[in-house]
Each structure stands twice: as C-alpha cells, then as structure tokens.
C-alpha cells in the first residue's frame, strides 16, 4: 500500500516535471507515461542523446559556489536553479529515475568553454552568459534566464527606485569591476566614493548605512537577499542583459535543438516557473519572471 502511494506520488511529480518528450524527435513519448518506472524516449542513432542514453550517464558542468544557481552545500550534492535546469535535460534523456545517471563537475567561469571543447562535460549550465565571443567556441541552447545588473537597497528605502534615482546617492560596488564601469556610464551623478574589493563588504556598508545602495549582477545580489531575509530589496528593472544559456559542443546542432525543446516544453507546462519559484523565488521572496524565449540560431 505504502509503496503504491509512493509510486503514484512519483508519477505525479514526473508529470509536473514535464520530462522532455521532445516534439521533433521520433518516438518521444517521454517519461510522462512511465508511472514510476522510467520509460525514456528513444533517439535516432548517432545523436548525442542516443549516445548518452546508451552510456547511461550525463556529465553536467555547473558552479559549486554560486548560491541559488549552483552551490555544493553540506549535502555534497550541488543545488540550485542551474542544476535543476540541467536535470530537466537529463530527465528528457533517461526518464524520471536519475539516480546514478547524472554527474556534476565544477566548471568555474574560466574553464567553461574548454571543458565543453575537451568533452569533459556534456553540457554546461553555470550562470553562463551567451555572447558572440563564446559562440565562436561553443553553442548555446536557451537562454533560460536573463540576469542583469540591479540595485540592492534596505527594505525601508523609498528614495531609490531605479537607476536614475541613484543621482547623488552613495552607491557601492567592487573596485575595477564591470558593474562599476556600467554605473559610471549609466549613472554618472551617483556618488561612487565608497568602493571595496568584495561585495560582502559593500553589503556590510549598506547594513551600517555607510552607503545607500549596492549595485551589481542581480544573481549576486539575490544571494545576499537570501542570506539576510527581510533586510533588503531589489529595486528597478535590471539595466544590463546577461542571458544565461546551456553550453554544448559547437557543431552539435541536434543536441542543442533537443535542449531547446526541453526548455520550450518546461516554459509551456509551467515546470520552469515551478523550478524558479522553488530554487530562487522562495528563498529570496522575489516574483517569478516570464521565461525568456528560446533563441534558436
């Protein structure tokens, strides 16, 4: 009895998880039909999906030190939004039972391209901004999230509402960083006299009232939002665009299309929103955005 209930529960979860029967590939019944045991899709021979399925394992590159997106905590398992997005792809290949079928490898920013090129990882989901320089070396599915520079203020601050209201206000960011350059260009009248070498110092200064705002990529700010619940809030729209994509081998168009299909499906059936809500929305109390349209190039 107990076991049956568990199975039922599992199948429901899987339905919600929308395991990627992809629309274009043949035989894509997906794991959704699989009430408990996994019934993965079958793929055309020679595709990466088929190769991975036969191998029985997918190697995923992610960050281990990025709170909310890819963080390897005390459990030893990486957790976060990037990790869950990557698991969606894995589920679409292997079906719902992923135990032993995923391996997470740490890919810090500097080694992401090389790890893909060398085949050390099958895909990278690691706060990986899509840009033209990187597209010369690897291919991107997605974007699955648009990050960007944002502004963190104390919860009770009503004076700062967006980029233009930073005029004359003390704004903290990190010395010599790209966000600093952006602030100097986009908010030239902001008071940038208090700068530090780390963001945690900026947040301390914000707590102490030495500065009125901290500005950098929202993903970093979200981490602080999570760590100090109820103390801070993000204001205004993000004023730069950092589309996060899933990196795959440059010439593997079939796999890239497959990942795009998985993302598309997750957008449509609400899985994406559910994951965002669970991994990012809830810990930081921010509303779930609309997923960005997949860019098939």
């Amino acid at each position: 009895m107990h076991k049956k209930m568990l199975l039922a529960l599992l199948s429901v979860t899987m339905l919600i998880a929308g395991c990627g029967s992809d629309d274009t590939s043949e035989g894509g019944t997906g794991a959704t039909a699989g009430g408990g045991s996994s019934t993965p899709s079958t793929f055309a021979a020679g595709t990466t999906m088929d190769a991975l399925q036969k191998k029985g394992k997918i190697i995923i590159g992610t960050k281990f030190d990025q709170p909310l997106f890819g963080l390897k905590g005390l459990s030893g398992q990486p957790e976060g939004f990037d990790v869950e997005i990557a698991k969606l792809v894995a589920t679409a290949i292997f079906g719902s039972n992923l135990s032993g079928k995923t391996e997470f490898v740490e890919t810090p920013s500097a080694v992401r391209e090389q790890s893909i090129i060398d085949g050390k990882v099958d895909l990278v989901a690691a706060t990986y901004t899509i840009n033209d320089t990187r597209k010369q070396k690897v291919a991107f599915a997605g974007p699955y999230y648009i990050a960007g520079q944002s502004i963190l203020v104390k919860k009770d601050n009503t004076a700062i509402t967006d980029l233009s209201s930073l005029s004359g206000k003390k704004v903290c960011t990190v010395l010599g960083s790209t966000p600093l350059k952006t602030l100097q260009e986009r908010a030239p009248t902001a008071d940038l006299s208090i700068l530090f070498d780390t963001y945690s110092k900026c947040v301390e200064a914000l707590k102490d009232g030495r500065v009125e705002a901290v500005s950098t990529d929202n993903v970093i700010l979200l981490g602080f939002l999570k760590d100090s619940p109820g103390q801070f809030k993000l204001v205004g729209e993000t004023f730069t665009q950092e589309p996060y994509g899933i990196g795959v081998k440059k010439d593997d168009t079939a796999f890239r299309n497959f990942v795009n299909d998985v993302l598309d499906k997750a957008y449509r059936d609400g899985t994406w929103a559910k994951i965002f809500e669970k991994e990012v929305g809830k810990p930081t109390e921010i509303p779930t955005p609309t997923p960005p349209p997949v860019n098939r190039y």
């Binding site: 010599g176 006299s193 208090i194 200064a205």
Partner: peptide, 19 residues
C-alpha cells in the same frame, strides 16, 4: 586602508591598473 575605501596610493594604482 584601501580595503576600507580610502583613496590612497595603492587604491589609485588599483583603479588605474583596472582601467
């Protein structure tokens, strides 16, 4: 002192080197 946001020599060096 540059670690607590004083703009002295080391900080000037840092800023200029980054720019």
């Amino acid at each position: 002192a540059y670690t607590v946001a004083v703009v002295e020599l080391a900080r000037v060096f840092n800023d200029l080197a980054n720019q």
